[in-house]
Simulated scan of single mutants.
Amino acid sequence: MPSASAVAPTATLQEPVVRVDADGIATLTLARPASRNSLSDATMASFSGHLADIAGDATVRAVVLTAEGPVFSAGHDLKEIQAHRGDADRGRAYFEDVLKRCAALMTDIVRLPQPVIAAVEGMATAAGCQLVASCDLAVAGGSARFCTPGVNIGLFCHTPMVALSRAVLPKHALEMLLLGEWVEADDAYRMGLVNRVVPEGESLAAATALARHIAARSQVPVKLGKAAFYQQAEMTLDEAYVFASDVMTANMLARDADEGISAVLAKRPPLWEDR
């Protein structure tokens, strides 16, 4: 099986999102560059199916999300959206459904037990930017650009706003949403939308390196920690400390916490069993 750090699968494969596993890392590739890797109905269905499979796959310890071609993702498929303008309800039922499915996809990323790392080359716009903001970590190639351009076409990026406002400071989020201007990779790093900026073309290798780093750890604290991070963020300060203390107590009682502390005291490498 090819290494997850190899060149991503080509778009000749029929599935809109292609999965390749290696060394405990599942690499998901948006593989429809001809459609600018838009989040079409088929792409979202494929993506959601892979996430459901990965969630229950104990062999997967981290996930890398990448894309074929010069555009990471242009967001929703505008042709599919416009095709429903002629519906009897002017598209209302379809619009509600597609936004509901997109929200579920973004939520699935956040709730996936394994960390998800985006490797972004080229443009990530609208729901494509939302996708990056929904991932736990993100690495951008030097020429990557980000935008929530809805305001430019009479359509505020309301749903991308949800993920964006949780990833960056409010004024940065509103700047992107209200101006609809391009944000270069270095500014995306400054805003906190991405964790690292690497030379153009190297985001997949860099993201995979981060995934390998995470995959080498016990999965008990990784999975507990990711879930707890998002849960405590919605709580008051007092609630968050009570909740975090309960989770950390459970973590301390895990076999791997005992092993990790014992390894530190004995000055030896730990032997993880993921329990």
Rank of each mutant, 00 (worst) to 15 (best):
A207G: 11
M176R: 00
A209C: 10
V168D: 07
N152I: 00
C135Y: 12
F156E: 09
A127S: 05
A140S: 10
P170F: 12
P115G: 08
A173W: 06
V110Y: 03
Q114C: 11
S143A: 12
R166N: 14
P149N: 10
R166Y: 13
R190A: 15
I153S: 11
A205K: 14
G128L: 01
Y189A: 15
Q114G: 00
G141P: 00
A144K: 04
A185W: 01
A163V: 04
L155G: 04
P149I: 03
V197P: 05
R190F: 09
V110F: 06
R111C: 13
A138C: 11
H158F: 09
V151W: 08
I117Q: 08
P113Y: 03
A124P: 08
M161A: 15
H158G: 06
V120F: 08
M161R: 11
P149F: 10
D187W: 00
E121A: 09
A119Y: 03
V183Q: 02
A163Y: 08
A167L: 14
N195V: 06
L112Y: 06
L204N: 02
H158A: 15
G154E: 10
N152D: 01
R196T: 14
A133W: 01
C135G: 03
C147W: 02
V198T: 04
M176E: 03
E181N: 08
A173Y: 01
T208N: 11
E181Q: 09
A163D: 13
G154T: 00
L210M: 15
G128C: 01
G201H: 09
D186S: 14
M123D: 15
Q114F: 05
L178M: 14
A144V: 00
I153G: 03
A133D: 08
L177F: 01
A144C: 05
A167H: 11
P149Y: 09
D136K: 05
M191K: 14
Y189L: 15
S165P: 02
V132W: 06
S143T: 11
H172V: 05
P199Q: 14
G150E: 08
A209M: 12
P113E: 10
E202A: 13
S165H: 11
T159G: 07
E200W: 09
V151T: 11
V139Y: 06
L131T: 01
Q130W: 07
T148A: 12
S203F: 09
T159D: 12
A209S: 13
E202D: 11
Q130A: 15
